[in-house]
Design a protein around this nucleic acid. Structure first.
Lengths: 223, 223
DNA sequence: GGCGACATGATTGTCAACAATCTTGTTGAA
DNA sequence: TTCAACAAGATTGTTGACAATCATGTCGCC
């Protein structure tokens, strides 16, 4: 299906995504083609291709002859993205069949169990992966592939915003409880509560982001 | 700002977009790199770059070693896209300040005037361009750049669907009247009617598409 | 010392040749 | 006739070298 260079390419893309969500790569940080091509043993062309994909994903920004930098959101921009995410996730929540199909509930239970285990074990990387999976499965069930796709798109774009929340144990507990509540509402068929929770759920990481950016106005925004 | 090859690249992209909206390029039709590179006097590399952009735009589909084809929507897929568009445009309509700023109304009046002139002159290309502009300006006024961007994204993706409507004089008259009504509602501050019209406005081209695809189930969809 | 012109190194952008892959047509045997 | 194996042509994918551009440091002049 996929040839080998595609695999390598995805490897690089995932690696950069990881670096962004865990804050190892900071907003506006430069990404050098030579550096990465050497580190990952791939041609500069492939790195460039990866940049192009990441650019379209909205994770990095490219300017002619100046290369790629990690995308930066001003607080205002971040707020607008979150408003849109709230709209989309609310609509998706309204479109999920209810009471939810047993198949969906089973998968969510499984993911939630693994999520709790990873959280207890302090395995942040696995927590993050399972969190992605949980959201993907929930909103993938909305019966509109483009709605699901768009939710996923902005889920990825906000990796760099959510990185301020990833390490906070209090937020992790919140996530876990809210995920459990989502499953409960789905099982009980409590649509109103479910929709509201899907909307409210996204804002806590944004609050963390705002706190981190509080005070300083965005410097060299137009540079 | 932009270097020359970027200009050429955009030229090719716009040309392909035009070919899709006017139905000169049909869904699932192949796009050959050599052919285009010769026709536009550019390197195959640049054509390939353009394909990549068009792929991300959702206008063409690429499969490894099989090249690029014009994207095809099944009727079901098209319906889902239109549902999402309805959601997004409705929300944008709700967010436009009302009564609308004079500046916005002036720009819309201008575009509408030019639109009518082009329609009377039978200049379809200009009609299309002004139609794009009208929608861009309206939804750009929603005060959320990502909402506007996403509306635009699906506006472009549905070029290939709307192509079935572009030549129909009756639909052209409808468009013109509905645009006039939108401006009127904006001016009068009639939000309810405005929102409803923004949602309803999109469906007529989809009906034309459904009629064109009526009967035959989508062949070789998974090939 | 301050400032602009120039030189240098670092980085990205472009291209054309070569390799890999797919598609199509042909042949020959069952 | 039908089918599989093979061959030839068409098309896409990859690479390395070279060109263009940008950022930084240096020098001489005022």
């Amino acid at each position: 299906m996929k040839n080998q260079t595609d695999v390598q390419l995805n490897l690089l893309i995932d690696s950069i995504k990881q670096d962004i969500i865990f804050g190892r790569l900071r907003p506006r940080e430069r990404l050098l083609e030579d550096q990465l091509s050497e580190r990952f043993n791939m041609s500069r062309h492939q790195v460039r291709m990866a940049f192009s994909v990441l650019d379209q994903m909205g994770l990095v920004t490219r300017r002619p002859n100046k290369g790629a930098i990690v995308r930066d959101f001003s607080v205002e921009e971040a707020e607008e993205v979150y408003e849109l995410r709230a709209l989309l996730q609310g609509e998706a929540a309204r479109r999920i069949p209810m009471p939810a199909p047993a198949d969906l509930l089973n998968r969510l239970d499984q993911i939630q169990e693994a999520f709790c285990a990873a959280a207890d074990a302090g395995d942040l990387q696995r927590v993050c992966k399972l969190n992605n999976e949980f959201h993907g499965v929930i909103f993938g069930a909305c019966n509109n592939r483009y709605l699901a796709e768009t939710i996923d798109r902005f889920w990825i774009q906000t990796l760099g915003i959510r990185c301020y929340a990833i390490g906070d144990p209090a937020l992790l507990v919140h996530s876990r409880n809210e995920h459990a509540a989502m499953i409960r509402y789905l099982r009980e068929g409590d649509r109103e509560s479910f929709v509201q929770l899907c909307i409210d759920h996204i804002w806590r990481p944004f609050e963390a982001y705002k706190r981190a950016h509080g005070g300083w106005t965005t410097l060299q925004q137009s540079a």
